[in-house]
Design a protein around this nucleic acid. Structure first.
Lengths: 219, 219
DNA sequence: ACCTGAACACCGTTCAAGT
DNA sequence: ACCTGAACACCGTTCAAGT
């Protein structure tokens, strides 16, 4: 009576079946862990295959090369980033534009600092020579959320009516810069949200003293 | 009469002397070229040794490992960055604070986009676990230039009297963000200086319309 | 359709031995 | 003091062969 269950145990745990079943997602999911723990440089296809219990040639059926696997991780990352940004940007009654902008900004830097290696991978992948259209689409969908936010700010009269792209780039550069400083430990993670809010405020209202109007610097 | 010069030719060009003479600087200088052409990932100690014409074990006398060579490149990079920033910040009669700040900002993003792989290496090296004090000192010397600029702005009454570190971080984040966008080709290099100037202006005077003072968003 | 395993051409690192 | 060259343990990629 026990022979069948013993046999199954052996097949499922000790001696894996010849076909893994869902090697592709197993690779991606393990790869994301390794990415988080060891960075892009610490991610090796052979080690991945070893961890999962499959031969080192097996991943090739699902990813042409290492680059292809990294690109898939990046696409997944952009999709998750987009979700986080859209949730933060979703309308809340009584919330000021500055409040919404701050919330979205904090959502961005939170994602970025929770997934430092992934974020870096996302941008280097997108920047690559032969980046897939799938990757570009995923990236653009993320950015579209932020562009919509700038348009909303202009419509509500809380952002200057200048070139949409220019304003969007400056805002995005600010977020990316804070991210970069946080991920290289130049900003303490405890003061991250506070600094992000301060940066949004500075960007909206300026760092120059506002009490006196354009005091001459000499004479 | 020709035998001596022929001998020298053979020694110097065909058959290299056993001792290279200045292998350390030869490695660093070739490494910087490779870094520029192929990025950090494309830099291999063995290839470097091959290019210079020395055995693959030779670099070990001068750099304990690959990391040590990269760190030396980073230190060199911070020294050059500091030079560029100090030149841009050096006093010019009749120049407004905003003018100086813009000039320094442009100097930073110019260095960063002229040496994209080097800049990335500089920050990842500094961020490393066992980063040398030499590296930290070189990095801090670069940042000190920018901190001095913020203090000057406050002294001239053109920057709000808030926390020096907070203001410095926001400014620096902006520059680092623009750098990141430029190096991933999200900003066209032709409009880089212009956008940098615009970002400085936005940071000083704000992106919110200034004609009406704090218009309520509802009611 | 999916996976294995040998083969190839690369790495970084170590270290006894050579000059 | 500096460099060589064999050795070791890793890679990514390819591909005939197995199930």
């Amino acid at each position: 009576m026990l022979s069948m269950s013993t046999f199954c145990y052996a097949v499922l745990v000790i001696q894996r079946p010849y076909h893994h079943g869902d090697l592709r997602s197993a690779l991606l999911s393990r790869a994301e862990e390794t990415l988080r723990e060891a960075g892009v440089d610490g991610l090796s296809l052979r080690e991945l295959a070893r961890d999962i219990g499959v031969s080192h040639g097996a991943p090739r059926r699902h990813f042409r090369d290492r680059r292809a696997l990294l690109d898939s991780l990046a696409v997944e990352g952009f999709a998750r980033l987009r979700g986080a940004l859209e949730e933060a940007a979703s309308p809340v009654p009584e919330r000021s534009f500055e409040g919404t902008l701050s919330t979205v900004a904090v959502a961005y830097v939170t994602f970025a600092t929770d997934n430092p290696a992934l974020l870096e991978l996302m941008f280097t992948s997108k920047h690559q020579a032969g980046a897939s259209t799938e990757l570009h689409d995923a990236a653009n969908a993320s950015f579209a959320t932020m562009a919509a936010l700038v348009e909303e700010g202009q419509a509500r009269g809380e952002l200057t009516e200048g070139d949409l792209e220019r304003i969007g780039l400056v805002l995005f550069a600010m977020l990316q810069g804070i991210t970069s400083l946080a991920n290289t430990k130049m900003i303490d993670s405890r003061q991250l949200d506070q600094l992000t809010g301060y940066a949004v405020e500075a960007l909206l209202h300026g760092l120059a003293p506002r009490t006196e109007s354009a005091a001459g610097s000499h004479t």
